[in-house]
Simulated scan of single mutants.
Amino acid sequence: MLLAVGTATSAAAAPTDTVRYTFDGSFVLADVTGNGHDLSPVSRNGGAFGTVPHNGGKALVFPTPCHNEPCPRIALRAPTTAELNPGRRPIRYGASVRLAADQTTKGENIMQKGYSIRGSQYKLQVDGLAGRPSCVFVDDRRLAIHAAISNVGVADDRWHVLECRRTGSRLSILVDGLIRGRATLPAGLSVSNHIPFSIGGKGSFTDNDQFQGMLDDVWVEIS
């Protein structure tokens, strides 16, 4: 379901989403902003997503944990576009997630644009057995990973709203509207690459950081 992102003081100052997926309607992978960043699945070994009711609409369900290869894998990708590259500009992005304690792994991708080893990156993930979410940035010139890690976990089989906020050198992660972690980014850090925006995993290959829970209301806002 579509949720408000912030409160503007005037119509002229109202932020606009660069991309948003509510997973409702007849085409659940549509970008509801009308900007054309619709998703397409890439999968392997029978990887698929399902839908479940959530807040009067639908949410996505990703493959359950698999410990014996070959495992089902799937990611949802939007076509490559510079519109989803923030460069040095402020950016906010987030999602609603539901993850049980037995669905955690060393790393699960909620969304990402780019890779940490090349091309720069921004990312929202849930890592470790405690299921602690984090926001990640990597510069397009220096490959150091910078992360704001939440001090609380979300793997309790309940819905949680996650948000990453980057303004200048400040990076914050919010869980259910509260700041739960911060990091300082290098001055001038820029994210600009030709890699597709993806949800639920890096791709369909073996080490794809597969998301294994439920996901709804994915959005990105670049100022």
Rank of each mutant, 00 (worst) to 15 (best):
T105M: 07
K113Y: 08
D157N: 15
D140P: 01
G36L: 09
Y122W: 14
A148L: 05
H160D: 09
H194M: 10
V191L: 05
V28L: 13
Q103H: 11
R180K: 15
V138H: 02
G56V: 05
A59T: 02
C135P: 02
A59K: 00
F211G: 01
T80K: 05
V19M: 15
S120C: 09
S134T: 04
K58C: 00
N55V: 00
I199M: 06
P133E: 10
T51R: 10
E83G: 00
T22G: 08
A11Y: 12
L215Y: 06
A144Y: 09
G203N: 09
L84H: 01
F49M: 08
E108P: 00
G107H: 15
S169W: 00
S198H: 01
L174A: 12
A8S: 15
I199D: 02
A148P: 02
T18K: 06
V97W: 06
R20C: 13
Y122T: 05
T104Y: 08
L29D: 04
V191G: 05
F211V: 02
C135H: 04
L162C: 10
G119A: 07
R166C: 13
P53Q: 07
R89P: 01
V152D: 07
G56C: 05
G6T: 07
W159R: 07
I179C: 07
R73I: 00
I149D: 08
D156A: 09
V97L: 14
G25W: 09
V5Y: 10
F137Y: 14
L129R: 14
P15N: 12
N208T: 12
R182S: 14
F205W: 13
V97G: 04
Y122S: 06
R20P: 03
G203R: 04
M111A: 12
T206Y: 08
T105P: 01
L3D: 05
R20G: 11
R73P: 00
L76W: 02
L171D: 05
M214I: 02
D217Q: 12
G57L: 04
T167I: 12
R182F: 11
A13F: 09
D102W: 11
D209A: 10
N35I: 03
T22A: 14
S190N: 12
G131N: 07
A12T: 12
Y93G: 00
T33M: 08
Y122E: 03
A82P: 00
D156E: 11
A187Q: 10
C135T: 04
R88G: 02
Q125A: 15
I149E: 12
L185M: 09
A187C: 00
C135Q: 02
